[in-house]
Amino acid sequence: MSPKIEDGRVVGAQTVARAFAVLRLFRDQGGDLGVGAVAKELGLNLSTTHRIVRALVAEGFLAQNEDNERYYLGTGALLLGQAAHSNFGLDVVYPALQALAASTGESVNLGVLAGEIAVVVERIESVQPLRFTQPPGTRVPLHASSMGKVLLAFNADVERRTLKGVNRLDRITPKTHATAASLRADLAMTRARGWSTDDEESSLGVRCVAAPICDSAGVARAAIAVQAPAVRMPDARFDELGPQVATAAKEISTLLPPGHSF
């Protein structure tokens, strides 16, 4: 049966969008929430919020804590996440991420392209007491991160779409590239050596090295990055870590089944 359409819009699309917004809120908050808090965060009225929450409970994507009447992500969300984890090939690549974290002593991220940003989908935390936290689900700017820049450098379509007609770039820190020309020079260097750097461009005090995970055509669909506090990553360590990260990224690309796309 085809969806009902009125005035060019799919009937019920707004409700679906709101349900996804509720699920994203629970994902990002990482704890239980009451209906009032959900309504306030999303700018919805209480009755609408309650209907959406109850529908998600009925489908198993939310569950209710009977002690405080708050809600939390249910088994439906867990099973969906596990299926996505497997479909992304994360079970296969996780050992390689662990090995890179162990050999470098630093945190390791796996990120994938999601439109005009990159999203962290897996992370291995450093055992060091001083570290930067960037949990799965974190949205990463393409122009101001090692992961984002390596995705731009090895995906011509994304680079063209991101920088077309752009002269000035949003500066997140004083070290972020301010112009498209400056960023393009960085991307050319990244392509030449096979890995990128982030010299406190997205967060002051944090430096990173990343390499692309490419498909059979050599196009980057994902990337891995090693993060460390700037005090543990002087310039010389960029040259040490770059080849290590690039080797790990190539290993991961060989582990994925033919035709796999993040």
Rank of each mutant, 00 (worst) to 15 (best):
P3T: 10
K4N: 09
G12V: 06
A13D: 10
A17S: 13
F20S: 11
V22K: 10
L25T: 04
F26L: 00
R27F: 10
L33S: 03
G34C: 00
A39I: 03
E41S: 09
G43T: 03
V53L: 08
V53K: 03
A58G: 05
A58E: 05
G60M: 00
N65D: 12
E66H: 12
Y72C: 09
T75H: 11
L78Q: 15
S86G: 08
N87F: 11
N87C: 06
G89N: 10
P95V: 01
P95Y: 01
S107V: 01
V108Q: 07
I124M: 11
P135D: 07
P135T: 03
L142F: 05
F154I: 15
F154A: 15
F154T: 14
R161P: 04
L163C: 07
G165P: 08
N167F: 13
N167L: 12
R168C: 09
I172V: 14
A178R: 11
A181L: 05
L183I: 03
R193S: 10
R193K: 14
S196I: 03
E201D: 05
V206G: 00
C208W: 00
C214H: 02
A217R: 14
A220R: 05
A222L: 04
A225K: 13
Q227M: 15
A228E: 13
V231D: 13
R232T: 04
D235I: 08
A236E: 15
T247R: 15
A248R: 09
E251Q: 15
P257V: 03
H260F: 12
S261Q: 11
